[in-house]
Structure formats: C-alpha cells, structure tokens
Design a protein around this nucleic acid. Structure first.
Length: 258
DNA sequence: ATGGTCGTGGTACGA
C-alpha cells in the first residue's frame, strides 16, 4: 500500500507565484502537485528552480494564457494524450503515470458569460474531454483528474446561489458536463470527506471577496471508481490565498492509499 | 482598462 498525496493549484502565473509555490511545497510536501494557468512557454519554464527544490516536472505551456504542469517528488512518466483539435488548441491538459494511476491535470475554459462564444467553446471542450476520459478508462481504470474545472458542482459550492443562479461556472449545461464524469464513476474527493457548505477554492480579486469568503469551489480532484475507497482525506488549504500578492485560487488536496 | 483586481505585454483582454 503506497500513500499518494496529490495537490492541485491554479497559480495564476507560475513565475509570479514561484516563491508561494515553494513555500507551500516545503510545508505540505505533496508527492504530486498539478498546476494550472502557468502562463509560461516551455522554453521559459523555471525547470532549474523546480529541480533544485527536489521536484521532477512535466509541463505544457504557451505565452500569456493557460499552461499546465505536474511536479512530482519521483521521476514522472509523461503520457502524451491523443487530443482532438478542440482540446489541442490551447495548453489545458497534461498527464503522467504514477504507478498504475493515470493522473490528468486539467484547466477547463472559463466560459466568460453564459451564451457567449467562449461559453459554447467551453461546452464543446467539456464534451470532447468527457469522450476522451471515457476512452481512457478502457486502458486506465485508475484515473485521477484534478485541476481548475471552472464549474461549481452544486449550489452549496457557491457563496450566494441566488446571485449565481444559471450564471457562468454554475449553469445547468456546465454542471451536466461535470455530471457525465460522475456517471463514468468518478467521485469528487472533497465531498467524500466534507458535507459542509461555504468551503471554496477561488475568490475574485475584487471587492475583498476572500476576506468576506465570497467564493466558489471550482478546483476539484476527481477519482475514478476503483480509487474511491482508496481516498482517505481531502481538503482545501485557504492559507496561501491570504498571503501577499496571492493567486486567486487556493490549493486543494487529496490523499490516497494506492 | 465600461466598478472593484490581477497577469500579461506593451495592447486591451482574459479571468
């Protein structure tokens, strides 16, 4: 039985948040940390600094927007996902193997506003992603998908459900796209261990949203059915959101006995 | 910077 401590964090620029990341890694020491919105090209990825802190890395970045990376304490086996065009357009996915577990780092499109062009792109993206995951399950029964889903699964994951009713990040079509993953057998690891509301992973920079705990829980760690019973803890660490010049997201965690 | 803040790149745009 091998313990696996996995974290996911939308850092909103890896280069700006490198000190926060390392500070957090020093006190939490996850085996794997999945990063989103690295906003750095592969050529400019701070591999030397990451390596110096004892982490191996796989990363897929682009200029200005998006970008994902997985850091691990053990050497990582990158898995090159065969992506349809809609998923390959931007750098929103990367994957690696940890023992026999396929670990997928995901940064789902934000969608901007319900009904907008970006919203339809988000739904199209999510549909393609669901199909990809469904096909991967045939080869990899044990899958962890973690990242910024840009979807709050339920109203209890939203600070003011009335304000956010059918708004972006909360609309029924977005939640249905997430539901498809649950129907494939995935579980939201946070909800395996927590029933309470008012637990969030993202707070807008504006209007002192964090101090007032006006947030949403949109950063998720999903475990495929064979891994559900192996998940022994899950949580959100809001501490780094209170640091000076923070990411707008908090790191989320899940621990497994694999 | 169409309220509010932040990252990016050097321009408004995306979140």
């Amino acid at each position: 039985m091998i313990p696996l401590k996995l974290a996911s964090w939308n850092v909103n620029s890896l280069r700006v948040r490198l000190d926060h990341l390392f500070l957090w890694l020093d006190s939490n020491r996850p085996d794997l940390v999945l990063l989103q919105e690295t906003k750095v090209t592969d050529a400019a990825f701070p591999l030397e600094a990451v390596t110096a802190r004892g982490y191996h890395a796989v990363f897929r970045g682009q200029k200005t927007y998006n970008g994902v990376a997985i850091l691990g304490t053990a050497p990582l086996t990158a898995i090159d996902l065969a992506l349809p065009e809609v998923l390959a357009r931007e750098q929103r996915l990367c994957a690696c193997l940890s023992a026999d577990i396929l670990v997928i780092d995901v940064y789902v499109p934000n969608g901007s506003e319900v009904g907008s062009e970006k919203y339809h792109y988000k739904l199209e993206w999510l549909h393609a992603f669901g199909t990809l995951v469904q096909s991967l399950l045939a080869t990899y029964p044990r899958i962890i998908i973690a990242g910024d889903f840009n979807i709050a699964p339920e109203d209890r994951d939203v600070y003011d459900a009335e304000t956010w009713h059918e708004a972006i990040l909360c609309s029924t079509p977005e939640r249905h796209a997430l539901q498809r993953l649950f129907e494939l057998g995935f579980a939201d690891t946070f909800r395996l261990h927590h029933r309470e509301d008012e637990r969030f992973s993202w707070w807008d920079y504006r209007a002192a949203a964090f101090i007032r705990n006006r947030g949403l829980r949109i950063d998720l760690i999903l475990a495929s059915e064979p891994l559900i019973s192996a998940c022994r803890a899950a949580d959100i660490d809001t501490v780094p959101r209170g640091w000076e010049r923070p990411s707008d997201h908090a790191p989320v965690l899940a621990e497994f006995n694999t």
